[in-house]
Amino acid sequence: MTKHTDTIPETRRRMLGAGSLTISMVGAICFCIILFWVVIALVGPWLAPYPIGKIVSMDVFTSPSRDYLLGTDYLGRDMLSRIILGARYTVGVSIAAAFIACTIGVALGMISAVLGGWFDTIVSRGIDALIAIPHLMFGLVIIAAIGSSLPVLVGTLAFLYFPGSFRIARALAVNINELDFVQVAKARGEGFFYTVREEILPNMIGPVLADFGLRFVFIVLLLSGLSFLGLGVQPPNADWGALVRENVSGLAYGAPAVIMPSLAIASLTISVNLAIDNLPRRLRDRLP
């Protein structure tokens, strides 16, 4: 038995083993920023120095001062408090909506891919039709009809974004389903759910996470759009997008009231995407 001939050379093995679970520097920083915002969203009400709608100063668009660390907005409200309390909406609503959208999309996508046949045809056609609807318009119609509340917002946003998730997940799962290890599982007699859960899902987790990041960013932007039109988060509450829009006239003075919420959005969305790009290799490099 020539056993030595099919072992990996020692050097190559070390290369493979090393570093496969280490997180890169960038990934770590981004992860901290996300965590920071999540914490802010959770404990915001106890942190904010002033109530959200209270007009605290006669001066509008002021620069940072000892009393108002991030200045005041166009009505003279404290920006720091508004950003802290806005995190609830931006982080909370968007993550919840993106999570629901991806979960439904991925589950349905995998089921469609593996079952195939008429189920796949019907679901795929239906979702093609949904994708054709313009997002903002559809959102307007639903929220205008039902009235705006947090569950309605989350539900609408999730509904608008799950078809994209479905498409990506189905395309991935169709490819993985053809791979030999899935065929082996089927030949062994494994049931449908085992195959989907153990053989297919873990192999598409990388691209699914990347898709989650993108979808999250879109949802943040759409939520801002809705708020701007008065259908999103209702005043005096505001998500970050709404803060940017309501203070946009302060841009000419370089007021922190418009710059700070923009930075908050940028820091969160960029971090989410970079964090996903920098996931440990073992997760990211999975098929296909």
Binding site: L179, D180, F181, V184, E198, E199, P202, N203, R286, L287
Partner: peptide, 10 residues
């Protein structure tokens, strides 16, 4: 194809 016959995540 031994490459595709084993689930890379298990």
């Amino acid at each position: 194809m031994a490459d595709t016959a084993l689930n890379p995540t298990r």
